[in-house]
Design a protein around this nucleic acid. Structure first.
Lengths: 105, 105
DNA sequence: TGACAATATGTCAGATTCGACATATATTTT
DNA sequence: AAAATATATGTCGAATCTGACATATTGTCA
């Protein structure tokens, strides 16, 4: 779609730009947020591939359903630490983690 | 050197095995520890490549020299979260992180 | 539709992790 | 080898993160 969407938006008087610009994030912060989202997504995909409910997953992780929901939503109260431990607990391979990292680029 | 070292050790009456076996870690715990160590090493390598002292690095990370030392030592009081934020703050690329992950395999 | 399972969101006390400081131990320079 | 620099280790109050629970919302099937 290239510039189509953007120029249409401009006509309507919208300002355009990246989320990063809008929130005034540094590159580092943006990378951090992106990383969290990629890992969160990887976690959800893995859980679903294993055909587990969030409650099932919570048991394996020795956590609670609500926390699993927050992990998958990359909620601000969830650390990268927890996300990674959760992925490992569901059997994610280093390869899988590496792929998630790559997606941030 | 294959089995040489191991068999020599056996002759001397040493028990052999992995650190994981010795400490009785689950696969998940072992992977977590390994991950921490790889990231810690990557951080140190990056800092040195940038010719920064731990104090210099601490300033960029808005942290303290002692904490940087602990990060590089993969100290138990340092979270993966902090390690990753530190790497990003020093400008590590997603590619670099992916490589560190891979090394865990 | 209404019941039921799954997921999402808000809150909080206890646990963990944080930066900072003091101090010990290398390592380098003179 | 003493001084100067760099790194490592111990401790602590404050800040953040965690699991658990309550509750709301969404999705699914009879």
């Amino acid at each position: 779609m290239q510039t189509t969407k953007k120029s249409k938006a401009a006509k309507k008087g919208w300002r355009t730009g990246t989320v990063q610009e809008f929130l005034g994030l540094t590159d580092e912060e943006a990378a951090y947020v992106e990383l969290r989202h990629q890992l969160a997504k990887a976690l959800q995909e893995l859980r679903i591939r294993l055909k587990l409910t969030q409650i099932d997953a919570a048991k394996r992780l020795k956590s609670s359903q609500s926390r699993v929901a927050k992990m998958e939503a990359a909620d601000a109260t969830v650390s990268l630490d927890l996300l990674l431990r959760a992925l490992l607990a569901l059997g994610a391979s280093p390869e899988m983690l590496a792929r998630a990292m790559r997606r941030c680029a």
